[in-house]
Design a binder for these strands. Structure first.
Lengths: 201, 201, 201, 201
DNA sequence: AATGAATGAGAGTTCATTCAT
DNA sequence: TATGAATGAACTCTCATTCAT
């Protein structure tokens, strides 16, 4: 069993996970064949099994890759002392950036994790839930501080931000021209101000 | 070959499409087997082919069912003389309701249409684009009328509304307890006002 | 799910079991491919799965076929009132005949049952053990009646008879010329009298 | 290529053969993988090929190991001047002991040799046949000498003794508690005297 | 209008084998 | 002497599809 050190094996294995992420993102878990993944990595089909016990393990690893760092960054943001608007922008930026950085793994986490067996899925779900709860907490703190309206449903708001980011994430993956920073700014603005013009009176 | 009148055949065929929608929504296109669909409908696998030429045709029909009415209603909304806020609420309501009404077909349209061949996909895409354009137009008109800020990017706004509705739609399909009307109100509010508290000066 | 009546399905399924028995007997469980079995039956490989859920189920059914009748006949013999010598001859005859009748299924039961999962194996083992116990009982009764020597270890004797029959069974399967009736007579004689010449004094 | 002297290589090679014997005996030739054998020996899969040209060669060596000494001992017994009963006991003892001594190799020879190619199999068969013929000769001599009944079929008797020993051998391999000496005595007794009580007149 | 039976292509997976190091 | 990495063929199994009935 390989260590998590910097061996050649681990290097190649990570490459394999990234290949799986790309292919799963493109064709979906069931639509993608192990031959597709192997071809993307430049090896033969059977050789994949030197790195994965099964196709399912590949999916599992991709999902983990997809949310690990992204959840970690959310913790950093939640623990910071920045004002609400800055935290929100940071969250959205981090979320959208993840779609670029992790080779579509986050998309795979969102769309394909349901094909994992219960056990692995709940483990991932725990991570995902923590993310939402931390975002929710940010909203609640802002509401307590009077920064946002008292009528705002924080659960709804957090879920909406996540949903908004995810739906843009799909477009980001498909369209490499999209500017993630501008988009993050726009999304944050929308959530903060809405679209309505300021009442002038 | 049966006519498209109100025969028993057409009745059963619609039931078959709905079964396909339910199964595709649950397991994805590739994850679902024709046997699953048949079982959901209460017939045997081979008998499905009396209603569909192929599994792909089933997907195609489901996607069509998923957006037809929903696009139609958008046209009605776009053509109406209601004020912007009312149009937006109507759009969101219609969108979210579709997830309930059409037996998960809209979810299938969103998640699985990419598995259709070019030809059929572009045909659907046309419908989907029209939807977005009409929504975009609503935003543009509102901007011209000074109802929303001039800095609002209408393409971005329309896409965001659609994304927001779709991400909530996924939750709606999985959670039958969610109240679609309240949700529509909340989404509209978010887009209109954002979350920021009113500046008191 | 098919009934155990005389449907076409059950007829074909039995034929499939017999084919599996023949092929397993010839090449062993792991050495035989499902393609081999299908070819022996005159259908295509994939079609086998219309009759079996898995290759393992095929093995399981073959093993069952292999001992079912054979165990049943032993019960009849054990319950009869015949003298010991007649019972022994009947047992040996029945045992050897099974190798001819059941299309090598008994050989498969002996050699390949260890590849079944625990659960199914123990179920079969119960049947097999009953067989040995009944035979052992026959020896014990004979010993009590003074028909055989008091020094005879009945467990050893029963196991030896079974082993003798099984080893001849292997030869019977491979050599269609062997006369089972003569063989049964010889085996019984050996066990009854041994080879030693009568002491003449 | 190493010599057949007492090098470290030959030492390890013998260990490899014994590992193969153990694994083949446990899982069968086709059920066992080269990885299993390597693991049993404490090396990695690929390294096995330093000792064997192929998996088949491993089987071939195991079979040879299984019968070589056993056949040799039979020759010694056959050439000796002992009385029939002593020869028979010696034969049975030697046969049963082989199951203990040679690491299950004799079991492998019996059960798996059929997977060898014609050429190698016939070579082994020659050895095996010689064994049976020598045993047959022992019976024939005893019959000529009037030690055993004239009605005894010597071919049948020799085959039966071998079969009896092999079937007990299987049990010996699986059950380390079985006392081989007692068993040899019992088997010999059975063949000599049968089970029938002495006629008292 | 529906079914039972079969098919064949393709999937995931295993594994004996090779070879540079 | 042994290993890590890779390969390709074979295998079990699934499934969309067909068709006689």
């Amino acid at each position: 069993m390989p260590q998590s050190t910097d061996t050649r094996y681990n290097h190649q294995r990570l490459a394999a996970i990234r290949s799986a992420a790309a292919v799963f993102a493109d064709k979906g878990y069931h639509g993608a064949s192990t031959a597709d993944i192997a071809a993307h990595l430049g090896i033969k089909q059977g050789s994949l099994y030197y790195y994965f016990k099964s196709k399912e393990e590949a999916l599992s690893e991709v999902c983990l890759l997809g949310i690990r760092d992204y959840v970690k960054r959310m913790s950093v943001i939640a623990d910071s002392d920045q004002p609400f608007a800055a935290q929100l922008l940071a969250t959205v930026s981090s979320h959208l950036m993840s779609y670029r950085e992790t080779n579509e793994a986050l998309k795979v986490y969102n769309d394909e994790r349901l094909y994992l067996p219960e056990e692995k899925r709940t483990k991932l779900k725990t991570l995902g839930s923590r993310y939402r709860q931390q975002l929710e907490k940010i909203f609640e703190d802002a509401r307590s501080a009077g920064v946002i309206r008292t009528t705002v449903d924080c659960h709804f708001a957090a879920q909406s931000v996540i949903g908004l980011c995810n739906s843009w994430g799909h477009l980001i993956v498909r369209d490499p021209e999209l500017d993630v920073f501008i988009l993050a700014q726009q999304c944050t603005d929308l959530v903060l101000q809405g679209v309505t013009a300021a009442q002038s009176n």
